[in-house]
């Protein structure tokens, strides 16, 4: 049963990658970005037309699009995503390094927003229609309709510029390399971008958990629990916690796509050298191999999130678990 589940998922991932690869290749080839211009950059005036043609020929840009796609896809299948033109480094190693930097940011923001959002949702749901609930809802609705970059700029102005508590940019102090920076310095630089990301991320999980809590409190089993002398707090924390947490965990894993999107904006505002900022750079400076590489990587990243959500549901929900056990 579990092997079948995995096989189906892997098959779907392959299909998804094929579709995303085709679509993004199509978009890039019809975009006005000229890879040779992007590569040559500021040296454009010093390079003759002949030299450009030599570069284009060397890269196979004189071939028809279908053949180019075939060659690119073939290389991709063997794990060669090409060389980034702006970093002059293999795409895979650029993505690897940048992702590690982004990973800590996203992991911190993700766990902060998950824990806080779930807690706030439980409180709001258990105290439905009180002042506390209204306050939490107001916060959630405000954050749900606020752009990430704007929150980032406000926090930057308050905490970095006015109060001077947090650094203005980057993932470590300027002038040092990543290896030279201490853990404390890195955490210090991580704080504000992570808070920005989680402030926004909290909204969705709070509202969702609140709905589920209210639903649970109105359910037949909650009424029966109250008849047994259970308090509201007892129902929320003893009886219904599993019923509320299960969909919340699913939602949190499924929101990895939004987290990635948020990271692009937050990293840009804080000049945080993660994968998000690299995406923007690759786009602006026409680094096509890197851009395509990141697109494929984010596809796998979001897919993994959804896959984890599915897997956890199968492992934790007894209704799915038992039937799975019965079949295998």
């Amino acid at each position: 049963m579990i092997t079948q589940f995995l096989l189906v998922k892997i098959f779907r991932l392959i299909l998804l990658i094929a579709a995303v690869a085709t679509l993004s290749f199509l978009l890039v080839s019809s975009s006005p970005v000229n890879p040779v211009d992007a590569y040559v950059g500021t040296a454009m005036l010093r390079i003759s037309q002949d030299q450009r043609e030599i570069i284009a020929k060397r890269w196979g840009l004189d071939k028809p699009p279908v053949e180019r796609f075939g060659r690119w896809a073939g290389q991709m299948a063997t794990g060669n995503l090409g060389v980034s033109t702006i970093f002059n480094e293999p795409v895979l190693s650029v993505i690897g390094k940048r992702f590690v930097t982004s990973f800590w940011l996203m992991a911190l923001a993700w766990s902060l927003s998950g824990a806080l959002g779930f807690g706030l949702g439980l409180i709001a749901g258990a105290r439905e229609d009180t002042l506390l609930d209204r306050g939490i809802r107001l916060y959630a609705y405000t954050m749900a309709s606020t752009p990430t970059f704007w929150v980032g700029m406000i926090l930057l102005m308050v905490f970095s510029v006015s109060l001077g508590w947090t650094p203005v940019c980057c993932a470590w102090p300027p002038g040092l390399s990543a290896e030279q920076a201490t853990l404390w310095q890195r955490l210090h630089h991580l704080l504000l971008p992570a808070v920005t990301l989680s402030l926004i991320g909290i909204a969705q999980i709070t509202l969702h958990t609140r709905e589920k809590t209210i639903e649970a409190l109105r359910s037949d089993y909650a009424v029966f629990a109250r008849a047994q002398g259970e308090s509201i707090i007892g129902i929320v924390f003893v009886r219904a916690l599993r019923n509320v947490a299960l969909p919340a965990v699913t939602l949190q894993f499924a929101s990895l796509g939004e987290l990635f999107g948020g990271a692009v904006l937050a990293e840009q505002v804080f000049a945080y050298p993660g994968l998000g900022r690299t995406t923007v750079e690759a786009g602006i400076r026409g680094d096509i191999p890197l851009l395509l590489g990141i697109v494929l990587f984010s596809t796998i990243f979001v897919f993994t999130g959804n896959f984890m959500a599915d897997l956890i549901y199968h492992l934790v929900d007894p209704r799915l678990r038992k039937t799975a056990g019965a079949i295998s």
Binding site: D220, V223, F224, A225, A227, N243, L246, D317, R319
Partner: peptide, 15 residues
């Protein structure tokens, strides 16, 4: 005072 509820949905499905 105890209640015997009307429907078996009074049991929490996940416990």
């Amino acid at each position: 005072i105890a209640l015997i509820p009307q429907s078996i949905t009074a049991l929490n499905p996940l416990l």
